[in-house]
């Protein structure tokens, strides 16, 4: 995160916070009064020099949209939900971060590991490509066959999402 760069007034998107509070999980963003419980209880922040959930929340409140959405640290959250459970103001911190990730993803900013899982689900119904060998091994272990994953049916249900097309384009 480029915290050391001075903030220019032109960078501030004053409507950004309302964009977030309209989204599922982001509703309580404005309740945050920066106590820092989230950062001090965050297991990732303990080992990261840059990941600070409190800072992400504050930047979001301030409307530093581009900085937040382009920040690598957004993707470090382990989604353990400790911050959400302990926030004295009831902010769903981890969900605000997820909302921000979703918005970044819409702009095409997604680390490869997440992108791969999405395309794997669309192709096979599973987040990881399960090798044929594994399937055969199940038989020899006496395990029932795996659900087929049903990618056709999944894609049918997801067809209505404009998002899907966007993602496919990126994969090309």
């Amino acid at each position: 995160m480029v915290e050391k760069e001075p903030i220019k007034a032109s960078e501030i998107d004053t409507k950004f916070k309302y964009e977030i509070t309209k989204m599922h999980g982001g509703e309580k963003l404005m309740r945050c009064f920066q106590c820092g419980t989230c950062t001090s209880d965050c297991p990732v922040a303990r080992f990261s020099e840059t990941y600070r959930p409190r800072q992400i929340i504050r930047m979001t409140q301030l409307g530093l949209k581009e900085r937040v959405l382009n920040s690598d640290t957004l993707w470090l959250c382990a989604s353990c939900f400790t911050c959400t459970d302990r926030c004295p103001q009831g902010v769903e911190v981890a969900s605000v971060i997820r909302v921000l990730r979703n918005l970044a993803a819409e702009k095409g900013i997604v680390p490869r590991v997440f992108k791969e899982q999405v395309s794997s689900v669309l192709d096979s119904g599973y987040a990881y490509k399960i090798p044929e060998l594994r399937m055969k091994k199940r038989e020899s272990l006496g395990l029932p066959p795996l659900p087929k994953g049903n990618p056709e049916s999944i894609c049918k249900t997801l067809r209505g999402l404009g998002f899907l097309k966007h993602l496919e384009k990126q994969g090309e």
């Binding site: 599922h24 997440f114 066959p145 659900p147 999944i154 999402l161 998002f163």
Partner: peptide, 27 residues
């Protein structure tokens, strides 16, 4: 009971699209 129609629960998609996650889980 085995259920051949099941797919991924949806969680891995949540960081990319919350809506996609909701649809897969609801499915």
């Amino acid at each position: 009971v085995e259920m051949p129609e099941f797919n991924c629960c949806g969680l891995p998609l949540d960081p990319v699209s919350h809506e996609m996650m909701l649809i897969l889980a609801a499915r």
